[in-house]
């Protein structure tokens, strides 16, 4: 390892993370910004590592980013995000034919949520439903699936539980990310056939590459340029980019994290 090599931390939510980062590692070396990767089992440890300087860049979920930025006193910078991260949405699904005109109609009924550390499947649903006039924590019976804690919903496991619970009638409605719901449908998850989307939230941002402000400006610029130059039409990169669900990288900004920051404050998750 050369002294100039950057260290990037990511969470191993699936074995494919190794495949992705082995390929990206050679890409960054070829692009003149050698970057090794370090895998963590959970985002809390990754956030600690960024703050302690063990890694220079964190590949964070939105929840991890908000915690990191909070703990750094706002002293972070975003070096890039995926195309899919820019317009993320949460949807409510119900059994077909049980549609509702307003989420407030869920008062007194059962609402299934994903892992409590998932921005898209637990934290933001409560926030956005409150904006619609439904205090779900008080007015609904919450059926939470706190699986894979520490992964912030990356595995999709808790959302699969949500879908199954709604299809089985154990919950009246369920919250999950629009992307996961569409992916479950494309994969042929049988329970999805019985469900439909009845509400969707405003959009927000999801993952990003985060560094502390203390990382050298020129290094950040060169690294960010390298990420943005990754080409989906390069046959040697496409498989890894498809595994990472990215067709194109964008510079990213803070704009889309305001709702999650507010939600985490409301839910006393930023201390």
């Amino acid at each position: 390892m050369s002294g100039a090599e950057l260290r990037l931390g990511a969470v191993s939510y699936h074995p494919r993370v190794v495949t992705i980062w082995e390929r990206f590692r050679t890409y960054f070396a070829d692009a003149g910004v050698p970057t090794d990767y370090v895998l963590f089992s959970n985002y809390e440890r990754l956030v600690d590592a960024v703050l302690e300087g063990t890694v220079d860049i964190g590949w964070n979920t939105n929840t991890a980013y908000v915690v990191l930025d909070h703990r750094a006193g706002g002293g972070t910078r975003i070096l890039g995000m995926r195309d899919v991260d820019r317009d993320w949405g949460t949807v409510l699904v119900m059994r077909k034919g049980e549609s509702l005109d307003s989420p407030t109609e869920l008062a007194g009924r059962v609402l299934a949520l994903g892992s409590r550390d998932s921005g898209h499947a637990a934290i933001l649903p409560l926030h956005y439903l409150a904006e619609e006039g439904l205090d779900a924590a008080e007015q609904c019976r919450l059926l939470r699936f706190d699986t894979d804690l520490g992964k912030h919903g990356d595995t999709g496991d808790s959302e699969l539980h949500v879908v199954r619970a709604v299809a089985a009638g154990e919950a009246d409605a369920g919250a999950l990310s629009d992307v996961y719901f569409s992916a479950f449908r494309a994969e042929g998850v049988p329970e999805v056939a019985d469900l439909e989307v009845v509400w969707r939230s405003p959009t927000y941002y999801h993952c990003n590459f985060t560094a502390l402000d203390s990382l050298d400006d020129e290094v950040c610029r060169r690294w960010s340029d390298a990420v943005l130059a990754m080409d989906f039409d390069d046959p040697s990169l496409r498989p890894a980019m498809e595994l990472e669900s990215v067709r194109r990288w964008y510079p990213g900004d803070r704009d889309g994290y305001a709702s999650l920051t507010a939600a985490m404050q409301e839910q006393s998750m930023l201390t």
Partner: peptide, 19 residues
């Protein structure tokens, strides 16, 4: 269908298109 309209953005995004 309202349900289709609500589901379309997620479908479009993973298919690489923008609503």
């Amino acid at each position: 269908s309202r349900a289709v309209a609500l589901e379309l953005p997620g479908w479009a995004r993973i298919a690489g298109h923008d609503l």
